[in-house]
């Protein structure tokens, strides 16, 4: 079903594509025009964090109500979040190559944290596939999901801010908000976050409907 928030997601992202390229940005050395990547790279990661949060909420809901539908949505949301980490990583690597001079570095805590978080969620899917009994699988993977989310949050958001980092906003670096004194960037950045989160919800909606149809077809 084509809902209003799906159309809104598409419209907002088209707006950020157009005005993100044309709008004024602060002029900074090293970054030059690549500062516009903040309109795409960061909202994609926000969408991933939102999907992982959605997944953990559904997992807790399953543990509370034992409704298998929650478990199904929890798995699909984790899949969508993991899928969104791919463009997040690729856009980050492109940006890093032209500003930091390298595609990847193991010296930056945020990059290490992201790699660890992705491995943790891959382990979540391996755990799910290793248990055949439906209810047991749902219960155990829901518990793992809670730990996985907390660990991901610590590795991506908390630890990088405590140590030295090249990432803006972490490790004594100023975030871009400090340069955007006339709020020109915020006018594109905040809608972009909302747009990409709504787009990830659209993809989740489709995946959820497919998996429900599959489940009903298998269990008739």
């Amino acid at each position: 079903m084509i809902k209003w928030w799906k159309i809104l997601a598409a419209l907002i992202i088209v707006y950020t594509l157009i005005w993100g390229m044309l709008g004024p940005v602060p002029k900074l050395n090293i970054l030059y025009e690549t500062i516009r990547n903040v309109y795409y790279h960061v909202p994609i990661w926000f969408a991933m964090l939102f999907q992982m949060g959605f997944s953990v909420v559904c997992a807790v809901n399953y543990l509370y109500k034992s409704d298998l539908r929650s478990d199904l949505i929890s798995e699909q949301a984790a899949q969508v979040g993991l899928f969104f980490s791919l463009p997040g990583l690729l856009t980050g690597c492109m940006w890093a190559k032209f500003t930091w001079g390298t595609w990847w570095t193991f010296q930056d805590p945020k990059l290490n944290g992201v790699a660890i978080a992705i491995l943790i969620y891959l382990a979540y899917f391996i755990l799910r596939s290793s248990i055949t009994d439906e209810l047991k699988r749902a219960r155990i993977s829901a518990v793992y999901n809670i730990f996985a989310f907390v660990m991901m949050f610590v590795f991506i958001m908390i630890l990088p801010r405590l140590t030295d980092s090249l990432h803006p906003g972490n490790g004594n670096n100023p975030a871009f908000g400090k340069y955007d004194l006339d709020n020109h960037m915020r006018m594109v950045f905040y809608p972009a976050i909302i747009g990409w989160i709504l787009l990830s919800l659209w993809i989740l909606d489709i995946k959820k409907r497919i998996s429900i149809l599959k489940y009903n077809a298998e269990n008739e």
Partner: peptide, 18 residues
């Protein structure tokens, strides 16, 4: 914008088929 609208078109196609 063209690339993005193609992706949106694919999502709409999946939505309608579902």
């Amino acid at each position: 914008v063209i690339i993005f609208l193609c992706i949106i078109g694919y999502l709409i196609y999946l939505d309608v088929k579902l």
